[in-house]
Structure formats: C-alpha cells, structure tokens
C-alpha cells in the first residue's frame, strides 16, 4: 500500500488539519503517521483502514506535560504496512472506533482503565484486566499507592528483614 493512496482516501473527508509523515527502519519497513488536529477525525481514518482490509493492532496513550492532556496513538496494519494515528485529548475522552474496527475493542477498553480516558460509544463498559480493587488510571501515576502511604516499598520491607536476619 502506498501512503499517497491512503492519503487520497482520507483527505476529502477529514474535517480538521492533519499532518502525514513517513519513516522507515533500517530494514526498509515503512511506517506512516497521521497526526490529527480534530480528534473526531478518528472515524474517517478508521473507515479508510477498514476499506483497505486493515486491522487495528493496538492503541497507546501517554500523559503530556500540559495539565490534563493525553496523547493517544492508534497503530493499524494494512497488509504489512503500519499506519499510526496520533491525536491529543484535553478532556480524557476519545470517540471509539470499535464500532468500525472490531479489532480495536480491547485496546480501547485498556485505555479506559489504564489511563482513565473515556472511550465514547464503546460497546462494552466492563473492565478488561484491571482488578476492581484498583482505581482506574493506574498508568497516570508514577509512584505506587502503598509507597505513597507508608513511604516504604515492598523491596524496602523485604530487605530490612534480610538485614535483621544477617545481624542476629
């Protein structure tokens, strides 16, 4: 699949501005990036992926330095070419593409529990992996709750037992 061909498929339908770039690794595998300004345009891209018989591989999110904003990256595959779609959300929500691409199902559910990013219109509201004893958005925090509360990590506790054993 040529990147220009894919661009033709999306350019007339996208509402906001977007950037298209391409990189490749030392083995010659190309990697396309679609960087969206308007996060609603995810649906346009997802439909184009579907039209090319592609699939959603996975999605990633990370917290930005700017307060309360997250960058979300979807990774798609069209017959061996990776297409990455990047967008920014400032209200911890995105519009689900699972109704268009079933293969995005788990990736979006995980985004919800790991980053507390709501996935609007996702067909399933259950948690996927994260136990209900844990609060949503665990990957937003850098320091674990127990360390925050007691100032001690499990490693600290175990090593103090070793040191006691060595003394006695």
């Amino acid at each position: 699949m040529k990147i220009d061909e894919f661009n033709n498929a999306i350019k007339s339908k996208i509402t906001g501005a977007y950037e298209l770039k391409e990189d490749s690794d030392s083995y010659g595998n190309s990697n396309a990036w679609v960087i969206l300004e308007n996060k609603r345009d995810v649906e346009v891209v997802a439909k184009a992926i579907k039209a090319y018989k592609g699939r959603c591989v996975v999605a990633t999110a990370y917290k930005n330095e700017k307060e309360n904003t997250h960058t979300v990256v979807y990774h798609f595959d069209i017959n061996g070419t990776i297409v990455n779609m990047q967008l920014v959300t400032d209200n911890q929500s995105v519009h689900s593409i699972t109704p268009i691409l079933k293969s995005a199902d788990w990736a979006e559910r995980e985004m919800r529990e790991m980053y507390d990013i709501e996935v609007l219109g996702h067909p399933c509201s259950d948690r996927l992996f994260l136990d209900y004893s844990l609060v949503k958005g665990v990957l937003n925090e850098y320091i674990s709750l127990s360390k925050m509360q007691t100032g001690l990590s499990d490693t600290d506790v175990l090593w103090s037992k070793i040191n006691k054993g060595a003394e006695s």
Partner: peptide, 12 residues
C-alpha cells in the same frame, strides 16, 4: 517467594 522482578507493581 519474593515477587522477584514484579515487586512494587500496583497490581501485585
């Protein structure tokens, strides 16, 4: 025995 490499994770 000690949670090894996974120790200090929120999920353990």
């Amino acid at each position: 025995v000690s949670c090894g490499i996974f120790r200090d994770s929120y999920a353990i």
